[in-house]
Amino acid sequence: MTPPAPLLRDALEPWCAAGVTGALRLLENPGGTVYLSDGRIAYAECPAACGVERLLTASGRLPGEAWRAAANVGRNHHRIGAELVQSGLITQAEIEAAGVLALYDAAFFLFDLATPVQFEPGARQPVGQLCSFELRTVCQEVDRRKRFLAEAWHDPSSDTAAVLPHRRLRSQIVALTALQWEVVANADRRRSPVDLARLLGRDTYTVMLEVRRLVRAGLVEPGRPGGSAAAESLAAVRARAAEPPPVMARPAPAEEPPAMPARVRLAAETADSAEELPALPRREVKRQPASQAGQTAENWVPEHVLHRLINGIGAL
């Protein structure tokens, strides 16, 4: 029997442990890429998330032409960011911060997906090296974000549905954060949080978080699902993930470190163990990293995960 594809965060383990540089690309919906640099997570992108380009240009921080000019010069040398810093339009700290936000935003959507992946050795992100994190750090941040989002408001339907601000309010006074104001001001009764994030140049996670808070405050309600292709594909992936019992997608659920018990539950609630009928391509992909890491195809997941977990528990 073919085991189900591992979650992306588990699929990344052997690559990170082997200290490789390259890109892990998702082959199925919603698509996305995680870039590794010497075994550390250097960048990630996903259609639902906002990349560095959108964070900087759509927010008005940089004119679009400035980005395109830097991209023309720097794309092939993986140094768009360095070009921008050199031209004095932006500081190193700003571009690094944008890189971290873009990485976390994409990781939030990608890490609990169970889709086939393909590794491309040596591939690097065109924007250049802006930051790098241990896999464990990124996983912790993804888990924290999921928890934070669930605490803000339990219902995920507003994440991918059109944002409908209430036309009348029962309360007498309303206090909004600047981002909440931007969300309300730009909600045209069709745009979902994914679309609003792209429009505003904010990271999608933050917009989803603010929309959930607005829903809880009774200022906004989720309308029809969809709005854009990215939002629809995200909604479809989540719906698919909700169908099978999601625990089976975890390779070693019993070995969960005590610090993150919420992980399985949250994976079940929000994302993303996309289960599909054809199982063959997954098996292929699974074998690929194993041979790279120099282990047997049959047992690399449990051994490896167990090893990492024991180290992790020791470190705690």
Binding site: V85, T91, Q92, A93, E96, A97, V100, L101, Y104, C131, E141, R144, R145, F148, T177, L179, R202, D203, Y205, T206, L209, E210
Partner: peptide, 30 residues
């Protein structure tokens, strides 16, 4: 031009500073 790491180094170099961080307070990420 300061990067994030340098920025933190400068903060830590101040007398009596025990810890420093850069936080994105919209998402709560460090």
């Amino acid at each position: 031009m300061l990067g994030i790491g340098k920025c933190l180094d400068h903060l830590m170099a101040l007398h009596g500073v025990l810890g420093a961080s850069i936080i994105d307070y919209a998402s709560g990420s460090t």
